[in-house]
Design a protein around this nucleic acid. Sequence first.
DNA 1: AAAAAAC
Length: 484
Amino acid sequence: MAELKSNSEPPAERKLYWADEAEEEATSKPAPPKLSWGEVAASSVDALSIRETEFNGFLDEPEALNIKAVTTGDTPYTSASTFEDLKLTQALLKGITDLKFQHPSKIQAVSLPMILTPPYKNLVAQAHNGSGKTTCFVIGMLSRVDPNLKAPQALCICPTRELAIQNLEVLRKMGKHTGITSECAVPMDSTKYMSFAKRPPVTAQIVIGTPGTIKKGISAKKLSVGSVKILVFDEADHMLAEDGFKDDSLRIMKDIQRISDHCQVLLFSATFNEIVKNFVSRVVKDHNQLFVKKEELSLESVKQYKVDCPDELSKVMVIKDRILELGENLGQTIIFVRTRHSAGTLHKSLVELGYEVTTIQGALKQEDRDKIVKEFKDGLTQVLISTDLLARGFDQQQVNLVINYELPVKHENHSEPDYEVYLHRIGRAGRFGRKGAVFNLLMGGRDEMLMEKIERHFNSQIAQVASWNSAEDFKAALKAAGLL
DNA sequence: AAAAAAC
């Protein structure tokens, strides 16, 4: 199992956005009413006992609007307006206050009662990027574990090792006072490699990892899942997608369900396309659900732009002269590329032009990946080139700028955009309601067509930067995004 | 070579 270094404290300027709202509310108006949405819907229970209701609790939070809740069964749930409402242990509450979380975000207020109330129903939860989904399942896992039982009781599966490590760091900080043990199950770096057969059995109460390593642990009988009562899939749509980790995920789910009589399954993601949604309802029985319309998924606080570039060189020049030149003091930047190869060539071009950039992609050695992520998270590097390795879940609050050097496309058909990946990429900026900007660099008619499809899909206008080589145009764009 | 995970 991988070792984990504890992260440095978040910088002082960090401010959680719902906390801001809470302060404002305290001075300007009374606390929001507790919504009992399960009950609201009770009047319209149909034959199947499916309840459906629109949620508009904290109207000030743009990200919070229009999460649609559908519950099955007759358990009423009451949205939590404070963390105290959730009857968490004192130790866990302390961890939450330590992290300066004052007020649950929308998705937390709504999902946590569903997760924590018997009979612990399965949950499929969609919420906007950067709205605090990790906290939902972290609190869920920490609350449901029996501290006296020294065996794995909660499992969380993530699509990349970077995300697993990041989630474990959040869990350890939040669970600092609980005494609950946790471990990361991800591929180890070459220097420390040890086969599962030689390793001692996992005793940690919470295990967070990637599908391959978790699967190996189970089949090598070093990770016993008999006591697992909560199973979380982060980025769940990808974990259950045909071209994602569907087979591994189903395998793990079945292994657990075979020997653990009731295991609560939680699926979290910002995106669930119709195909995955249909599949999910077949494999996760009798679940409550929270959904957002795709048209309402783009973050208001992140301004999106498109830039027509005549050729490859001009794309590099836009990054160098127009964006990085201006953006240097605006926080950190992630540049997304489609392939490992273009990551390499772009890296080379920018370095030759005298820019300090680092690059991450899956072909690098584990230890190099760890180093590059650490340097970026510590703020030692400003600009990071990445494949879609970091498209999902990567949480670095100082990222204000995302550049799509190449647009994400479907593997089977390069004329079709990958809408989900697009949304996840741009969600790396604007964490917790912060301001941010995205520049989509387009080259040629195919890119323009892809961009149009993306605009139509999310029903969002993407502003055009008039000229790729006008410093004024870019300055105006950043100003309009609130970054200058 | 799409990227990711993993042997």
